[in-house]
Amino acid sequence: MAGPDLSALPEILESRPADPSELLPLLTMIQGRWRHLPQEALRAVAARLSLPLARVFAVASFYRSLSFQPKGERLVQVCCGTACHLKGARAVAASLEKSLAVRMGATREDGRVTLESVNCVGACALAPVVMLDGTVHGKVSGPGAAGLRL
């Protein structure tokens, strides 16, 4: 499999000062652009910030918002905050797994959709909540979630 097209990478790298404190912002931008962190991009970040690759990798592996595997084109996140847990997030997750044909925490083989859990998105009053591509949908019911097809 050919790697992703990284021609936009230099521009991203140069948009921030070459300082170690820019590591997380840069990784976040790369994640946003390619929906994951390509290995070559991590090497370029390490070189740009004069950091050992191991340290860049450690930081990249620490934060939940960053991933090494490409995320799907559509991102479905089930909130697992306390209020959502109390109001049946587990049932919502189960019905989404069924209707989207993908396991929790995985990306469907066709690369179209990723289903994952997320820690509280701060819309607790409307629990249970599902986030679709960053937009929050409140008061989702298990059977209602089953209607979602992507």
Binding site: D19, L24, R55, V59, F62, Y63, S65, L66
Partner: peptide, 21 residues
């Protein structure tokens, strides 16, 4: 932030701003 609950802790938060885990 990068998505880590522990970053609410003061020393973890400063580490995160400095560009570390």
């Amino acid at each position: 932030g990068g998505g880590a609950f522990v970053c609410g802790e003061s020393t973890a938060l400063t580490a995160s701003i400095e560009g570390r885990e």
